Amino acid sequence: MKLLRVGTAGAERPALLDGNGTLRDLSGLVTDIDGALLADESALARVRAAAAAGDLPELDAEGLRTGPPLTGIGKILCIGLNYHDHATETGADIPTEPILFFKAPDTVVGPEDTVLVPRNSVKTDWEVELAVVIGRTARYLESAEEGLAHVAGYATAHDVSEREFQIERGGTWDKGKNCETFNPLGPWLVTADEVPDPQALSLKLWVNGELKQDGTTADQIFPVGEVVRYLSHFMTLYPGDVINTGTPAGVALGQPEPKPYLRAGDVVELEIVGLGRQRQQLKDA
């Protein structure tokens, strides 16, 4: 299923995109798309049954904003340098264990919402990423297969980053990752049953129409199931938690000088095949 949330910011309603591309209203069946829904197999079964029976009312999609496909996010865990080609382009050693940093849930915006360039920013960068959404509580998992079994679904994410804040201002990476609007998510949460192999997904990103990133999740150093297993040994993962699993080569940080960092007025588009496309225009904060 392709689950999404539509409407004005803060007042989105749950919806489903059916196999014909028609937007369907879920508000008569569920209150929202959140961790509680993803953990409730009977509720998800009711949604599937209603969709299959054609019982869901149609929504007029024209002019309707698409919000983030998930609300009530507990935590956003991010894996750094998780693609071989991205580690190579930045001159970093291949990690021997996943590199972890956090994003606050309030960085999440819709897939076409404005992204704000922070004040005093000179190195705002782009990163297309596969987002993994947890559907079952995970503690001390023993295998990558168990890790995959705890995934509810997948989404397209834009891990916007400010490299000076991240790398040159001391401390951890988090200062360059948590500026407002720095995690557009969606348009859809695609349930795991429709993504048979998360290591066979194509990721692309364009800036002002120019292709910058063109990668595949097959290049991940730590695949999805292993990332979930690994993280479950350091913290409990709960339904509705999100994991951004890293970005392929092609970010501004990896380009020759002068590096083409983002500025107000730029337009970024990104897509993971099967998970949907995003488009954001940048403005000054």
Rank of each mutant, 00 (worst) to 15 (best):
V117R: 01
L70F: 03
I167M: 15
E142Y: 12
I33P: 02
D113E: 14
G35K: 01
F101Y: 15
E194S: 08
G135C: 10
A285R: 08
F101C: 05
Q220S: 11
W206I: 04
D193Q: 11
L211E: 15
A131T: 13
D25L: 08
E127V: 06
V47P: 01
A252F: 11
H84F: 13
L148K: 02
I221F: 02
T124W: 06
R136H: 10
A104S: 12
G28Y: 12
A138N: 00
D197E: 12
E146T: 08
I134T: 04
A87V: 12
D32K: 14
H84Y: 14
T88N: 12
P118V: 08
E58S: 15
W188S: 03
K2T: 07
L237Q: 03
L17S: 00
V195K: 00
T124G: 00
V228I: 13
N20H: 13
A149F: 11
I221G: 06
G246Y: 10
S161E: 05
G246L: 07
V109N: 01
E12I: 00
P14A: 02
I79F: 10
A61W: 12
L282M: 12
H84G: 09
L23E: 01
P258M: 14
R24Q: 09
A15S: 06
K75D: 07
N244F: 12
M1G: 13
L77M: 06
G28K: 11
L56P: 09
V267S: 03
G80L: 03
G274Y: 07
F165R: 03
D40Y: 14
S27Q: 08
E145R: 10
G110K: 04
P57A: 10
P68D: 01
G209C: 14
E41G: 13
Q199N: 07
I94C: 05
N183W: 05
D34N: 11
A45G: 14
I94S: 02
A249G: 12
D18F: 00
G72M: 05
A9T: 12
R24P: 02
A9C: 14
A36R: 10
A51H: 06
L29Y: 07
L231E: 10
P105C: 08
G7V: 03
L253C: 07
A53Q: 09
D32L: 05
